[in-house]
Amino acid sequence: MDKSANLPLTPHYPENEGPEGYNSAPAGLTAGRLGIWALIASEIVLFAGLFGSFILMRMIHPEWSEEARHLNLVAGTLNSLVLLVSNFFMMKASGAAGAENNDNVKKYLVLTMAMGVLFLGVKAFEYTAEFAHGEFPTSGGFWSFYFLMTGIHATHILGGLVALGLLLNRALTGSMGNWKGRVAITGIYWSFVEVVWIFLFPMLYLLA
């Protein structure tokens, strides 16, 4: 049953106008794209506060490098590769959405979400291993920062998965319609989450 019939009809607007008003954005920039960039900018400052505090405390407590040895390096590296792969699929999905090839969009969205879930799975595995070894957020400064930073990052991945789910739900109705641009926007958000892990991984696992 083709569900795209009950999508809201877009009323006819005069030249260059939308429901909210006249489009005065500079060329090639849409409201959604500018919005996601501003959101990423404020998120970067959030992670800057987190990373700044961690680097600061890491310089005060050199003994944290011993505790960093308990981290499972293999799982961390695997997670980095998983995120790279999911980012690759995400870019393919936004390319396919641009080319209005709905089957590819569905395929790559599912693959991206699968990789995101795999990342969370590996993270959950790591957490349970650490809990088993008696390393909880309360057992020392390094562990509280570790669980805080990876926890906030995992929450951002969850948020991304929710957005991808909404996109997939729309893709399953047959055609992306005017949601076409939103795949690229979610792609930008997903790449931002990837960049955060690119910094988080060496900071936690690899620092001497």
Binding site: A38, A41, S42, E43, I44, V45, L46, F47, A48, G49, L50, G52, S53, P137, S144, L148, I152
Partner: peptide, 17 residues
Amino acid sequence: FFFSVGPLIAGDFMLIM
């Protein structure tokens, strides 16, 4: 506001923990 609030949200979570 939204350029300066980041570190305090981080601090907020730390204080909650």
